[in-house]
Write a protein that binds this DNA or RNA. Sequence first.
DNA 1: TGCCACCATGTAAACGATTACATGAAGACT
DNA 2: AGTCTTCATGTAATCGTTTACATGGTGGCA
Lengths: 372, 372
Amino acid sequence: MDESGALDRPDEDNGSGHRAVRIQDVAKLADVSTATVSRALASPEKVSPEARARVLEAIAKTGYVPNLAARSLRSQKTSMVLVVLPDLSNTFFSKILRGIEERLFEAGYGMIISDLDGSPEKEAHFAAFTAAGRVDGAILLNGHLFGQTREGEGTPAKTGIPLVALCEAIPSADIPQIEIDNRAAASRMTQHLASLGHRSIAYVSGPAHNILEKERFIGYQDGLKAAGLPFDPALVLPGDYTIESGVMAGQDLVGRTTRPTAAFCTSDEMAIGLMRTLLSAGLRVPEDISVAGFDDIDFAAVAEPALTTIHQPRRELGQAAASVLIDLLQGHPSPKRIRLETEIIVRASVAPPQNIEKAPAKSTRTRAIKPT
Amino acid sequence: MDESGALDRPDEDNGSGHRAVRIQDVAKLADVSTATVSRALASPEKVSPEARARVLEAIAKTGYVPNLAARSLRSQKTSMVLVVLPDLSNTFFSKILRGIEERLFEAGYGMIISDLDGSPEKEAHFAAFTAAGRVDGAILLNGHLFGQTREGEGTPAKTGIPLVALCEAIPSADIPQIEIDNRAAASRMTQHLASLGHRSIAYVSGPAHNILEKERFIGYQDGLKAAGLPFDPALVLPGDYTIESGVMAGQDLVGRTTRPTAAFCTSDEMAIGLMRTLLSAGLRVPEDISVAGFDDIDFAAVAEPALTTIHQPRRELGQAAASVLIDLLQGHPSPKRIRLETEIIVRASVAPPQNIEKAPAKSTRTRAIKPT
DNA sequence: TGCCACCATGTAAACGATTACATGAAGACT
DNA sequence: AGTCTTCATGTAATCGTTTACATGGTGGCA
């Protein structure tokens, strides 16, 4: 008996049920129309102070929260941003994510994360995501995958939502880029090693097709040139930024008869894996071989020995990317490219070579006059 | 001139504009009603094979993607899951996240992440999130914060959406728990250390009010008891799972005159920070002091020395939590509690104590008969 | 005083899907 | 052969907002 009529009596008591409070309930309680409630929230200056006060009171009383699906449907905005990244479980990205999240949160946006996981299938899925109007914009941390290898429809660029590329610049696309100067940083580290006296500097690379990698590799060569050192392909070891690939590079070095006196790894993970392998094989770091990294992850400082590396402002990178995207979403002008500064962090893993070896034999016939 | 009538002629060409394809466009092209299109997608068995074929063709031709805001508004489902965690930039969580994401993706759900960042303000925000009908369910990795310290309205428990607690069990709430047996694991590690001959085992704790921490601490005490060792409060060092707190605990140990022969840290980060500090001070690990960790993060294996620790199946934990939540969302029965197995990973950082010290002097007056 | 502009507010039409209900056709059973 | 069930499909209401447009009241200006 009590049930009859319960449906259309949303008076003041919403006590028992967990039925959501609608804008109409608020309107009724505040004795205004739904339009006024909506305006009181979206553009308070368009509503009289008294009405606004009543509305706010009613909202407080009912605990009203706007239904975002409805809002999104009507206004074609979702207050959601998609973040696409290649590997969620990578230390490097997670701090960037935090920076992104902070900024988005401040601006009232939510963050949807998708771990691309190297699968084109997933990639297509997330492209569809953007097409489905589920997000207002996206931040891409995976330049080389998205909209590049695949040109099929559904790529976010096609859907026309604002995009921002973070870290891995997409050369062709004309979307804003937030990044560090990978080339310059790699060059500087190489020169740093050279300035300490190293003549034979190995380079442990990232994945060959990775855009960051390409830039860093060029930077490495720049650095060699600037230091007057020859480039030796035999000193380039393949890697993919993971600890394991660093370990493998280490095994390679351990097995060599003539070893470089320094190794520049393009990620801290690889550097740590490399050091580990060298130490296990009885080599000393930095006495026998200096090791440098890239990124300055938290563990770099507590590695043994502590890792000399290039500091990337990861949180700031994330924040900058989010800021630019927010500007874009709100129609504000925004810079097309932001480059944040890196810094060489000098720690114990790099030192001058212990015993200066004879000049490298194989390359670039510089008129080597044997000193007798 | 060309423009007139352009609006209501969505015939077959959607070529130029990036206006989204609606279900009506598909219906028109397939010569069926919108209802049939919807059915062809949601419940194909309810539609004739021919009609379905035509619909699918039309969808393929137009590149139709359902508008999720509309679907969500009508069906009161969002295909979105909220993941709330205390710290996005923590290595430990990121691998769990990956497990969650994988599973959610398979089931067609998207993942919204919120880094709680220890701020109640944010917490309230995300509670509102769930209330706003933005997500169908949530996975909580922060038992001690959410719905516990604050009992205010808007806590997700109040909104009635399905929840799953991951790792940090919420004792009071009757929501499914996915976890490891922290107490047993800590006990086992403690006994492992004792079985090697350690009589004085330090414990580097997590944050005092953390639920994990409480369980592990009890486990530590269990382990001591099982090994017949006394509990000594002086051997309990405060920490908060971070590298820094491990460093500080290390400094504490270094400064002591009588040191424990082993230290059990409740996170790998702390263990690595601790080892680092000990090594810097000239102590040897494990010769002077053994160090054990908890979690088995990637860096544990390449620490120097390699870290003995407790392996947590983080990815599997994430997957399990997602699976349970999905079951809940789809009305399937699901287990109330899942406990995944841990495993002690024996590496180089733990060894029998080098020189057996005299029985601990201060505690529990066991009738100590001096052997002359 | 009369007209115009303006301001606060209400009315109602979208937004794009899902789905209860209605409809008509086709086969099954007596 | 007539009625009943079943099945495929269409019609239209609905989800909860936002917002273009309409409306009425108030004050300024000539």
